[in-house]
Amino acid sequence: MIRYSQLYWQFFKKHLKVMMEYRLDFFIGVMSVVLIQFTSIFFVKVVFDQIEDLNGWGFYEVLFIYGVATMGRSIHHIFFDNLWTIGWQYIRPGNFDRLLIRPINPLFHLIADRVQQDGFGQLVIGGLLMAAAMPHLGVEWGPVNLLILLVLIVSSGAIFVAVNLFFATLSFWIVDSLPITFAAFNLSDFARYPLNIYHKGIRWLLTWLIPYGFTAFYPAAAFIEHSGYRELGMITPLIAVISCWLAYRFWKVGLRAFNSTGS
């Protein structure tokens, strides 16, 4: 574990160096993500100018959900973005073999191979959203609450990673599962609004099957008195652990299949 953290730091330093070499691209990347995100926040703002609440959720509460979602996504985008590329950059051209002749965990190697700079844009916007929303929630932001928030955000990121890992693993059998991963990832957009506006079936799907609900809505609801989902919100870390475990098991199965067929 310590060895892997040190190793990750070595990888990370290299990526950082490359980013700083292309500083302009880095800032343009970050700024463009911020801009695009801003449009959807502006959308929420414009709508809330006309109404007081959305199914009982006020403007700042919806912003808070948005913020948690964006923070969770940013963790996934910055550090785990390479999962997207497993099919077309590793398995199809035969580069996955390279990972398999290294004396380290191939999943670690895959993840460490890339740091996605645009994810920093999400981090910025997520941070701004949180800062804007948090003072208006009627929550006392003491150290305990902040710690819980941090844990929930990390869990949110972990769930994003787990779902993507699960679908990316399909690439071991079908070479490139990117369209499927992309389709599944789209479901996470549901989680940006209070889940109780949706049909029961959608809610169930996003809670128990593809747990994107735990990437934003439930963890945010954990802090909101009247949400009715405080308990469900608090089990987010548990859901994250279970999802990651399942996804990793699936990855292992896929890897074994790859070991017996090659490509």
Binding site: V47, Q50, I51, L54, N55, D176, P179, I180, F182, A183, N186, L187, D189, F190, Y193, P194, I197, Y198, H199, I202
Partner: peptide, 29 residues
């Protein structure tokens, strides 16, 4: 492969429209 992308794209559009539908329905509650 293109077919897979077509369905993925269609799925994404359906998701987007569903979100719009439920969102606006809730707004007009």
């Amino acid at each position: 492969a293109y077919v897979a992308w077509f369905w993925a794209g269609t799925f994404a559009t359906v998701v987007k429209i569903l979100i719009l539908y439920y969102f606006w329905t809730a707004v007009y509650e």
